[in-house]
Amino acid sequence: MSRNYLGVKASALVAMRSQFAVIGPGLWLLQILTTTLFQMWFFVLVSDFADDPTATPSYVALGNAVASLTYAAVYGVCMSAGAEKHMGTMSGIMSTPTRVFYVFLGKGVYQSLIGMFTVTMSLLFSVLFFGVDLSAAEPLTLALVLLVTCFSMVGFGMIIGSIGVYVRSSMVLGSIVLYLGLLLCGVNFPISYLPDWLEPASLVFPLTYGVDAVRDVATGAGLMDVSGYLVVMLLIGMAFYVLAYVLFSYFEKLALKHGSLDVF
């Protein structure tokens, strides 16, 4: 009985944030789209005010459009774990013979669809309102780059999500990775602006390669030109899935042992 209440007593934010993952797809989409639009607008205005020669408003807008993938692909996937815990359904899932990993893989596919839709809409925003020029881009190459970026980002989300199965503050972690990409991945300014010690961190985020690849495609690069990025993203993407599988199994065992399943 007190276990249930450990859930209730947990900070309000937990529940509130979990709602992201449990609200219906309509509201979820609306939330991603408004957030993305205003986020893009904010940084466009900042760049306009800063008057930086490299990080121009259209540079920033394109970066933010690609970064909108983070919402569904990383945050959405990772938060499903928190939501499951909040709803108290985690032990239900765990007691089924299906491995938790596969349950989350299913969620990953669902969030990928949402991610692909929102990134398309965000690119449309960036073209319509913020002067991004995609006329030189090959549509198929662009689509492929986005798909591969999404694939590797879901893998990244699964890793964060696996930790969420076990630790109490998975929500804190989830919200950090939601926005960290805006700072580290060349979304709003080239990563060379970062202090030297921080630059390597950006290489862990698949978003870094995705943003670079989309920028190249926008200036007319073909499939062969961006194949390097694609290979890297596929490789780290797969490494993420393998690692996520291992982590899920490990945390699953640990959680069952310590009974921290439905506890925040």
């Binding site: 937990v14 900042v46 919200s175 700072l183 300014f189």
Partner: peptide, 20 residues
């Protein structure tokens, strides 16, 4: 639990710092 609430403003202003 304050982190989820102020992470967005923190990153937003830090990015602003870099741009400025």
């Amino acid at each position: 639990w304050v982190i989820p609430s102020i992470i967005a403003p923190f990153i937003f202003t830090t990015v602003t710092l870099f741009l400025f």
